[in-house]
Every structure is written in C-alpha cells, then in structure tokens.
C-alpha cells in the first residue's frame, strides 16, 4: 500500500507530534504562568519588581547584549575567514567554532574558573591589575559569550559558502576596497541570516544557566542572572516568586520566537520578489 493512500499514517504522526509538543512545551509554559499568577497579581508584581529581580534582569540583559555584540563581530570574522581564505589549520578552526556546542556548559564554566580563578597562574597578574573575572560580572559575560559563540558563525558559514566569491571578485576588480565590498556586496546576502542568528544567540544567552552558574558565585544583587535567581528562589521554597521571575524569561522567549518568525517571513519575501 502506498504511503499516500493510508490516511492513518499522517494522522498518527500529527497526533504524536501534537501530544509531544503539548506535554513538553505548552503544558510546562502554562504551568509557569498559572503558578506565577496563582497567588494573586499583587504577589506577582512584587516578585517581578523586587530589587534583586531587577538587578538580575539587568545583568541578564547586559550579558545578552555583550554576547550578541561580541559574537556578531567574532562570528562574522570567523565565517568570513573560513569561507573566503584557504590556509593551514582552516579545518581545525571550523571545528573549534563548534566546541561550545559540544562541551557541556558546566565544563565551560569550570574551565573559566581554572583559567582565571585563584588556582590559575594568571591569577596573581589579574589581581595586581585589579581585574576580577570569576565570581564577578566579567566572568558571567565571558561564560555567556562562550556558550553562544557558534550561533552566528554556524548560521553564516553555509550562506557565505553558497553565495560564492564571484560577486566579491567582480567588485574587487572594479577597485572596491574591503569595506565597500562588505557593505555593498556581501552584507545584503547575509543580513537576514545574520539577524536570525543574532536572535537565536540572544535567546540562548538569556537562558544560559550551566556555565554562568559555575562562574557566578550566586551573589544576590551582584552576580545573579535571572535563571540563577529563579533557582535561588525555588531553593528557598518561594515557589510563587520563582515562577513569577521564570515568567519573565518565558515572555522574553515568546517575544524572541515571534521576532524569529517575522525575520524568516521577511527574508523569504525578499528572496521571492527581488532575488533568485
């Protein structure tokens, strides 16, 4: 019997997917919202506007912004180098880009402790300069940047690869310099992919827990990010507060998802009208 003829196979597959999505994504999200608002709006507002929550939100946004800015820059550079030049060790570089995906975030955090913490040979030097990385905000930013590093590069490499270099060569032959070529020829090809990857990078940076948890030291009001704050509240049995703070992250995630869809739609539309 042909696959098309059997009406039960698509129904079964659709049903399974819907049940899976309901159980693993929609239900938990609904629970978060329900629990957050379950003890009344007053309590919710108090938890959300709490000083420590505000500070945690602030730090999370700062780390996210730093990760997005730095990784956009590094990701562009890495993708450009990997797709536009051939050199010894290029294969190694494109593998190294993926390391943060392969390594557990907790291990990444530990690596930073070992590299910059008190056990590190670098520590006396850092201390002499008055730089504190571990158990301070630079460590949190470093951990966040590390964990989200591959997003931009990974998204751009296939796009740059597929576009090829002939338009850039044509521009160079007409005497255009590097920045002119990048701005006028290369960038239009990658702008949607770049925006898309920045959105994914932001989403990941906001929710980062493992690596940040290790380097943070959990100093409330100082090195606490939103995900860490949720954990602390939960461990203190302040469930309503914990869910209220978690709901901020949930709302942010939904906003980001919506942004992602808008970008995807816009990119698709542009491809259809102007470009092949």
């Amino acid at each position: 019997m042909s696959l098309k003829g059997n009406i039960w196979i698509p129904r079964l597959l659709t049903g399974t997917s819907v049940i899976f999505v309901l159980l693993t994504l929609v239900l938990p999200l609904a629970v978060v919202m329900a629990e957050a608002l379950g003890s009344g709006l007053d309590l919710y507002m108090r938890a959300v506007t709490d000083t420590y929550t505000a500070k945690a939100l602030h730090l999370t946004l700062a780390a996210t912004a730093a990760a997005v800015v730095l990784n956009t820059f590094f990701g562009l550079a890495a993708a450009w180098v990997v797709t536009r030049f051939s050199f010894r060790g290029k294969g190694v570089l494109s593998t190294v880009v993926d390391v943060p995906f392969a390594v557990s975030p907790v291990i990444a955090g530990l690596v930073f402790i070992l590299t910059f913490g008190r056990l590190s040979p670098l520590h006396p030097f850092l201390e002499a300069c008055g730089i504190k990385i571990v158990f301070a905000w630079p460590g949190i930013i470093l951990a966040t940047v590390f964990v989200t590093f591959p997003f931009v590069a990974r998204e751009l490499i296939p796009v740059l690869e597929a576009r090829g270099t002939d338009e850039e060569q044509a521009a160079a032959l007409m005497g255009a310099g590097f920045f002119t070529i990048f701005r006028r020829v290369t960038f239009p090809h990658i702008r949607w992919a770049l925006l898309y990857s920045v959105i994914l990078c932001a989403a990941r940076a906001m929710g980062e827990f493992g690596a940040v948890s290790v380097v943070s030291g959990h100093l409330r009001g100082k090195t606490n990010t939103l995900p860490l704050h949720v954990e602390i509240l939960y461990n203190e049995y302040r469930f309503a507060d914990a869910f209220a703070v978690a709901s901020i992250l949930a709302v942010a995630a939904i906003v980001i998802l919506a942004a992602r869809n808008v970008v995807e739609y816009a990119a698709h539309k542009e491809e259809e009208t102007n470009v092949r």
Binding site: D166, E167, A170, A171, L173
Partner: peptide, 20 residues
C-alpha cells in the same frame, strides 16, 4: 592589484550583484 589594472572583466556566470 586587480582593481588598479584598468581591466573590465566579464565572468562566466556574470557575477552580477544580485541585490542591486
């Protein structure tokens, strides 16, 4: 440099700027 040789080049697949 290629850009300073005063050469016009027509590529095999034209390499037109697709976004222009």
């Amino acid at each position: 440099e290629a850009g300073r040789r005063g050469i016009g080049f027509v590529f095999q697949n034209y390499a037109l700027f697709r976004y222009m």
